[in-house]
Amino acid sequence: MTGWTVIWVLAGVAGVSATTWVSTPKGPNQVLIRTSVVSALTCMYLMWCIVYLAQLHPLIKPKRSDVRYLD
């Protein structure tokens, strides 16, 4: 997986958001449902993308001194 994953997922999230935006039925809660779904998706995408990007090209490597081998 490369950095392009971020873009693909973004496209996916945007697609889902747009679908929800269009398909939300009219009514007193239309605005609420649209906003909630879109903002929840955005937040979750941002979070995932930040964690993913931070590990894409790591600058430091994990070190530990307590490694044991089972065999």
Binding site: L56, P58, K63, R64
Partner: peptide
């Protein structure tokens, strides 16, 4: 002290 080796993948 052991340093891990980076593999060619990212934890998704």
């Amino acid at each position: 002290v052991v340093e891990a080796i980076q593999l060619a993948r990212t934890y998704p």
